[in-house]
Computed example of a mutant assay.
Amino acid sequence: MVNIDDFVKRLETVLEYYGLNASAFADKIGVQRSSMSHLLSGRNKPSLDFVMKILEVFPDVDLYWILIGKGIFPKNNEEPATVEVFDLPSPISSNRNIGTDLFSAIEVNEEEKKEIKKTASPKNVNFNLEDSEIEKIVLFYKNGTFKAYSP
C-alpha cells in the first residue's frame, strides 16, 4: 500500500529536482492541474495512470522509489537500467501443499481437471504480432526471483 504522505514528499522532491511548480508538472505529464492539486493536498491518491505518466516523461524517476521509497532518485545511470532483480515473497499458503517451489506441480483431482479443460481454452483471441514491439522480457527463476529486461 502506498503511503500518500510519503508519496507526496517524494513527488515534491521530483518537482524540486526538475525546477517545476505543480501546474507546470501537471501540464508536462498531461494531467489536469486540479488533479495535481488534490494529490499534493492529500485529498486523492495517485492512480496507476498518473504514476505511469510520471515515469514516461521523467525517466530518472524509479517506480519503486516514487511508490514506496525503495531505490534512489535520480536513477543511477552507471548501472544498467534495463536489468532489475527482485526477491519475491514466499508463496502464499493455501489448502494445497505446493512446497517452496513456485512452479511445482499441484495435484488436481479428475473433477477439477474436467472443469479446467472446460474453461481453459480462450475464445476469440486475436494476436496481431506484426506491428508489435517488445516492451519487456521477464525471466522467472525457480528460487523465486526474476529479472526484467527492457530493450
Results as ranks from 00 to 15, higher is better:
residue 32 Q to H: 13
residue 71 G to P: 03
residue 30 G to P: 02
residue 118 K to H: 02
residue 50 F to V: 10
residue 120 A to T: 09
residue 10 R to H: 06
residue 128 N to D: 14
residue 103 F to M: 01
residue 113 K to T: 09
residue 131 D to S: 13
residue 139 L to I: 14
residue 45 K to M: 06
residue 98 I to W: 02
residue 69 G to V: 08
residue 126 N to C: 07
residue 98 I to M: 09
residue 90 S to Q: 08
residue 26 A to Q: 02
residue 22 A to T: 04
residue 79 E to H: 07
residue 99 G to P: 01
residue 47 S to R: 12
residue 59 P to Q: 13
residue 104 S to G: 15
residue 73 F to N: 15
residue 150 S to I: 13
residue 19 G to K: 00
residue 12 E to S: 12
residue 132 S to I: 07
residue 121 S to A: 10
residue 2 V to K: 13
residue 93 S to L: 00
residue 86 F to W: 12
residue 45 K to R: 10
residue 150 S to V: 14
residue 40 L to D: 12
residue 27 D to Q: 09
residue 101 D to V: 00
residue 8 V to A: 12
residue 8 V to N: 01
residue 109 N to P: 13
residue 101 D to C: 00
residue 120 A to M: 12
residue 87 D to L: 04
residue 114 K to G: 10
residue 33 R to N: 10
residue 14 V to I: 04
residue 49 D to H: 01
residue 42 G to H: 01
residue 141 Y to H: 05
residue 143 N to V: 04
residue 89 P to M: 00
residue 119 T to W: 05
residue 149 Y to H: 15
residue 122 P to K: 06
residue 146 F to N: 15
residue 70 K to E: 04
residue 91 P to W: 00
residue 92 I to S: 04
residue 75 K to T: 13
residue 42 G to I: 04
residue 33 R to Q: 06
residue 133 E to I: 02
residue 67 L to C: 10
residue 23 S to A: 09
residue 94 S to R: 01
residue 16 E to A: 10
residue 145 T to C: 02
residue 112 E to V: 08
residue 87 D to Y: 11
residue 140 F to R: 01
residue 121 S to V: 11
residue 53 K to W: 10
residue 26 A to M: 02
residue 110 E to N: 14
residue 50 F to G: 05
residue 91 P to I: 02
residue 59 P to R: 05
residue 98 I to Y: 00
residue 129 L to C: 08
residue 70 K to C: 06
residue 66 I to W: 09
residue 46 P to A: 02
residue 135 E to D: 02
residue 134 I to M: 13
residue 41 S to L: 02
residue 131 D to P: 11
residue 53 K to I: 10
residue 122 P to N: 06
residue 89 P to K: 05
residue 134 I to G: 11
residue 23 S to G: 11
residue 97 N to Q: 14
residue 62 D to M: 15
